[in-house]
């Protein structure tokens, strides 16, 4: 029975990096091109989790647990962010009956 460490190390590091980069890029593109605030949130989560995967992978390869500690921090932060962000989105929806971010363009010169 392989340990979790060995299992993770059975995949080369480059694959993790590439995988994370792809997920991150998908997240970025999602944020850039989608107009629905909820989808943008989901894309942000993708980006955060891409980083989490990468941190976990490096942590294993370097035999250093601090990378995984960071992952927990990021998860807590993401949860808090979602709580506040969804509350805001709910308020926006109540006021504008839409979650389209292009409706919110009043704050300008």
């Amino acid at each position: 029975m392989q340990t979790v460490t060995q299992t993770i190390q059975s995949v080369p590091l480059n694959h993790y990096i590439l995988f994370s980069a792809i997920i991150f890029a998908i997240g970025v593109i999602g944020v850039l091109i989608r107009r629905n605030a909820i989808v943008i949130f989901m894309s942000v989560e993708l980006m955060l989790n891409a980083v989490n995967v990468l941190l976990a992978a490096f942590s294993v390869y370097h035999n250093d647990a601090s990378g995984q500690v960071f992952v927990f921090f990021i998860m807590a932060l993401a949860a808090a962010e979602v709580a506040v962000g969804l509350a805001i989105i709910v308020m926006i929806y109540r006021n504008t009956h839409s979650t389209d971010i292009n409706v919110l363009n009043k704050l300008k010169w």
Partner: peptide, 17 residues
Amino acid sequence: FRLLQTGNIGFYIFMMV
């Protein structure tokens, strides 16, 4: 320069990225 502040969130994010 103030014309850059369009109020369009998508544009801001794009500029940030």
